[in-house]
């Protein structure tokens, strides 16, 4: 495997002396990409491993809420498109795990962190998909919010992550347009279809605003991530950008947003207070579906164990035969 060769780290500077750190920061400041075999501070490696693997986990867990509607998609065209979209997410998970592996942690270990509950994934996937319109709303809003977060990551200082994000963003922006088109079709349809779309917007809007993370005054990770150019905009900046881009799209659909305080002010759509208690509760494990999502991933992993063992045993037999 390409990445396993990288699992053995260079000895590098034995202590993270000030010189090495200064040289590293100078490269970052000069917008150079950091590559897997380059020296990097341990905290940079840890931060990126956490971020990239959480991103990968989110893609994988994110297959579940949308997967919930593949068997009920109301037309064959929608069925094929949804299946292809969910497959794209699996693909994103795969190459994000590969990008994370370049930092020295194997995919098996990262998956284990997810299944044991030590690693997080995006809390948005702990909310249920209750109607076909949720598939539209997820594409439009959840993927829309993800893109706001991810476009700047295409310029992230860590080369493998930045390059993975370029492809991810292309596909996500296609998903976002596809989701919006589902909403548009519903909103031009029957009263019942339009009501379905409105209900989906009502349920997904606030959780989507929470996707950008805690307000800047409360974020734990932002400062170092900004200095290292892993992150380039603050949570609140990105959230505002998302709201500004999304509200006109919702109005074009003829839908209303579940926020009586939403108003246009100085060129920005200002929104009401986010329920940060709900955010903290869902992140901590008490959302509508936290337990079910993890249980589904664990079940797939455990029920697939005999298949993976068979593949390994077979490969070993073939190697012995060839030797």
């Amino acid at each position: 495997m390409y990445s396993q060769a990288l699992n053995t780290r260079d000895a590098g500077p034995s202590a993270e002396d000030a010189d090495a750190l200064a040289r590293f920061q100078a490269r970052i400041d000069a917008e150079e990409k950091i590559e897997p075999n380059d020296w990097m501070p341990e905290a940079y490696r840890r931060t990126l491993t956490r971020q990239i693997s959480q991103h990968a986990h989110s893609e994988i867990v994110g297959m579940l809420p949308e997967g919930n509607w593949i068997t009920r998609a109301p037309s064959l065209r929608r069925k094929a498109a949804l299946l292809a979209k969910v497959q794209d997410e699996g693909g994103h998970g795969l190459y994000l795990y590969a990008a994370a592996e370049t930092l020295g942690t194997a995919r098996e270990e990262l998956v284990e962190q997810l299944l044991s509950g030590r690693a997080k994934y995006s809390s948005i996937f702990n909310y249920p998909t209750l109607s076909w319109a949720d598939i539209g709303a997820i594409g439009w809003l959840v993927d829309g919010a993800a893109i706001m977060n991810q476009i700047p990551l295409c310029r992230c200082s860590y080369g493998p992550y930045a390059r993975a994000m370029i492809r991810v963003c292309k596909e996500e922006s296609f998903h976002q347009r596809q989701g919006y088109e589902i909403m548009l079709t519903l909103c031009r349809g029957t009263e019942a279809q339009k009501a379905m779309a409105q209900d989906a917007l009502n349920r997904w809007w606030w959780p989507c605003l929470m996707m950008f993370g805690p307000p800047d005054t409360a974020s734990q990770h932002s400062d170092a991530s900004m200095k290292w150019k892993i992150k380039r905009f603050t949570n609140d900046d990105l959230r505002q950008k998302f709201v500004d881009a999304t509200v006109p799209q919702g109005l074009h659909l003829g839908l209303t947003f579940p926020d009586p305080e939403l108003r246009l002010e100085d060129g920005h759509w200002r929104f009401g207070a986010i329920d940060w208690d709900e955010f903290k509760r869902v992140v901590a494990g008490d959302g509508p579906l936290n337990r079910e999502r993890l249980a589904a991933r664990k079940a797939a992993h455990e029920e697939g164990a005999w298949v993976r063992e068979a593949a390994l045993a077979f490969a070993a037999k073939r190697r012995r035969k060839a030797a």
Binding site: I60, M63, L64, G67, I70, T71, K79, L83, A84, V86, Q87, G90, G91, G93, L94, Y97, A296, A299, A300, E303, G304, A305, V307, R308
Partner: peptide, 20 residues
């Protein structure tokens, strides 16, 4: 397509979706 999200490995997840 009913396998989506529940396949024994990520690689097979993608393959089953392709077949479907």
């Amino acid at each position: 397509s009913e396998w989506t999200g529940h396949a024994p490995s990520l690689e097979e997840e993608l393959a089953l979706a392709n077949l479907a």
